[in-house]
Simulated assay, not measured.
Amino acid sequence: MSNLATLRFFSTPAHACSYLEEHQATTLFVDPKASITPKLYEELTRIGFRRSGDYLYRPHCDSCQACIPARVRVEDFQPRRSQRRVLNRNADIQVEMIRPVFTNELYQLYSRYIELRHGDGDMFPPTQEQFASFLMSSWSDTRFCCFRDADGRLLAVAVVDVLADGLSAVYTFYDPARTELALGTLAVLWQIEYCRQQGLPYVYLGYWIQRCRKMRYKEDFQPLELLLDERWQALPER
């Protein structure tokens, strides 16, 4: 029997949708008191759940199915010309995977990113407590992937959870002044290459939302699979 059968779930009241204006959303949460193991987390990830701190959630809206879980099929991924340019432009950047930790350097980058890129969102204003409660977890195998330039300056951090079948991309924050480096794209490309080297088949990218401009970027990483009707299916390339 799957461990999922032992879980309890709770749904929130309707609230303003973070992605689609004038829409109401409902979120399904795993019981916060449940004992989460790495194996259980992996099962939940494969059916579309995501992590925010210690909380596991999935959209559960009656009248809208716009938020669709997405993952990159690593073995068949080939970077596009624009993505190869991003890799070439950042050839001197070094990446180190570290255990989750709070440092002033990491927090200052996170705070600057939230203030300049998400000043109108529900994550503003950033706080130290928010940094820890959002990015870290007491039960996940989490890594901070730190991207540094040749002079050692921290440019970006990709927060990932290591799963048996890949990486779950939790969140990425980066220097908002360095738009020419396309650091968000670089972070995804690095995760795909890391999984390829480790023999892991997938990078889980969260939710693809066709009607939300900020979330459509995921379709640039083909082949992309979407969880539709409880089955992972390929998104046709455009």
Results as ranks from 00 to 15, higher is better:
residue 4 L to Q: 11
residue 5 A to V: 05
residue 14 A to F: 04
residue 15 H to D: 03
residue 16 A to I: 05
residue 17 C to K: 02
residue 21 E to P: 02
residue 23 H to R: 11
residue 24 Q to W: 01
residue 25 A to I: 01
residue 26 T to Y: 04
residue 31 D to P: 03
residue 32 P to D: 01
residue 33 K to E: 11
residue 33 K to C: 13
residue 34 A to C: 01
residue 35 S to V: 05
residue 43 E to V: 12
residue 43 E to A: 04
residue 48 G to M: 09
residue 49 F to C: 13
residue 49 F to Y: 15
residue 57 Y to E: 05
residue 61 C to L: 05
residue 62 D to L: 12
residue 63 S to T: 06
residue 68 I to K: 02
residue 74 V to P: 00
residue 75 E to C: 03
residue 77 F to R: 08
residue 78 Q to G: 14
residue 79 P to W: 03
residue 80 R to H: 14
residue 82 S to F: 15
residue 85 R to P: 12
residue 91 A to I: 14
residue 98 I to F: 06
residue 104 N to A: 05
residue 107 Y to S: 11
residue 111 S to P: 02
residue 114 I to P: 14
residue 116 L to V: 03
residue 118 H to P: 00
residue 118 H to V: 01
residue 118 H to T: 06
residue 121 G to P: 01
residue 121 G to M: 02
residue 121 G to Q: 11
residue 126 P to S: 04
residue 127 T to Q: 07
residue 135 L to T: 08
residue 137 S to T: 07
residue 138 S to F: 02
residue 141 D to R: 10
residue 147 F to M: 05
residue 154 L to Q: 10
residue 155 L to E: 10
residue 155 L to R: 14
residue 155 L to V: 14
residue 158 A to F: 09
residue 166 G to D: 12
residue 167 L to M: 03
residue 170 V to E: 11
residue 179 T to C: 12
residue 179 T to A: 15
residue 182 A to Y: 14
residue 185 T to L: 10
residue 185 T to A: 12
residue 186 L to P: 05
residue 186 L to G: 13
residue 192 I to F: 06
residue 195 C to P: 06
residue 202 Y to L: 02
residue 204 Y to N: 12
residue 205 L to F: 03
residue 207 Y to K: 04
residue 208 W to I: 00
residue 218 K to C: 07
residue 220 D to Q: 10
residue 225 E to L: 08
residue 226 L to F: 01
residue 226 L to S: 06
residue 227 L to Q: 07
residue 229 D to I: 08
residue 237 E to M: 08
residue 238 R to A: 06
